[in-house]
Design a protein around this nucleic acid. Structure first.
Lengths: 209, 209
DNA sequence: GAGTTTGTTAACAGTCTTGTTAATAATCAT
DNA sequence: ATGATTATTAACAAGACTGTTAACAAACTC
């Protein structure tokens, strides 16, 4: 662990993250990971016994990053409800923008092996439970204050996540169909964020009728 | 081709569709497909030379279904713009509801092998081009009539697709996290469709200020 | 510096998976 | 009915991929 370059372990992890995010568990090859990390594939099995174990590392690291990012979003101050939602949308969008391949990775892996998800199931469900109840309370308050029109917390949350996440998921299809490269296009993503906030704000604003 | 039960070919196609939709190309096994179809795996290779070729069949059939469904959505009559959009959302949502695994399948395969998408790239891009220009004209008309507030056609389209498609994509994650089964829950999907239409209608309605 | 632990390599074993082949049966055309 | 075509089976070939092992090197401990 000391003088020996243990950066090999890091190199393996980095290459593995690339490979898994790109191709998913089934498409990933341990030989390819080893090659990209610049080590023999025996080394890979020396540091991480199995492909599954290596994947677990990446999956947890990745999920941790995501959950952390989301948690950060909802520790908000005492501002008007609509403003807090707008800020949450902003931060949430930026978290994904910095890790754009993460949502598809998560969805893909859970879809093909739901049991793998069991580990962080509890974390998410208790977290979501708390979030939804506090959110619903805030909503009820804001509604009776006449600040917003009524809506379910779960409904609102799914609205927000759909709008913020889907563009990143559909990006490969969009790029394949148009030939454009959205990574370069920061204007596109700025506009998208703005539009999402606009949509949710309009959804929340009480109707004038 | 005649008296021989060529339903074996159909059985293989059916089993292959299941397998590919469920596990993706990389996760699918031709032996497993053959087993589920009730044929030897030599038969599979007799009818479809390679796994790739079998996949192409499924991919094309599947994409055709999707594109057809989408096309159907936008052949609309001479109703007010907002009403047409609401109806398009409704039909689009129902198409996906009947083929709920299709969007994730498409996105997953395009993400891990963009080149495979080249075949239907042209269809989609010309289709989308036409759609967007007519849509933009309709929007401009409706805006100058004071029916709606201004919006880009591409922006509106992405809003609509995000809201309608994402819930189906995230379904496995939702189910894994909650332990619930959304397939049974037709109320959930009815509400979701309603909410999506509500959101887009509010987005389009001119602001009262 | 002798011995122990840790890191590294190359070769290999075993399994899984795709695809082929050669032999056999069923169906069809005439 | 006979020959040609199509369907079907079982066994096998080849390769890819994961994981192991045995031998060796480097560093670390005392």
């Amino acid at each position: 662990m000391t003088k020996h370059q243990n950066n090999k372990e890091q190199a393996i992890l980095a290459a593995a993250k690339e490979e898994f995010l790109d191709k998913g568990y089934d498409g990933a090859r341990t030989t390819s990971i080893a090659r990209n990390a610049g080590v023999t594939h025996a080394m890979l099995h020396y540091y991480f016994k199995t492909k599954e174990q290596l994947f677990e590392h990446i999956f947890h690291e990745t999920m941790g990053m995501l959950v952390e990012g989301i948690l950060e979003v909802f520790t908000q101050t005492e501002k008007p409800f609509k403003q807090r939602i707008a800020e949450a949308l902003d931060i949430h969008f930026e978290v994904i923008r910095q890790n754009p391949r993460l949502p598809l990775f998560m969805i893909r892996e859970v879809a093909s092996r739901p049991e793998r998800f069991a580990v962080i199931k509890n974390i998410i469900s208790t977290f979501a439970g708390n979030l939804l109840t506090t959110m619903q309370k805030d909503i009820d308050q804001a509604v009776s204050d006449g600040e917003i029109s009524p809506i379910d917390a779960t409904t609102l949350l799914l609205d927000m996540i759909s709008l913020n996440v889907f563009p990143f998921i559909v990006k490969p299809v969009y790029e394949a169909a148009t030939g454009l490269n959205l990574n370069d296009d920061s204007k596109f993503w700025d506009l998208r964020k703005k539009e999402n906030i606009e949509l949710i704000m309009r959804r929340l604003t009480p109707s004038q009728a």
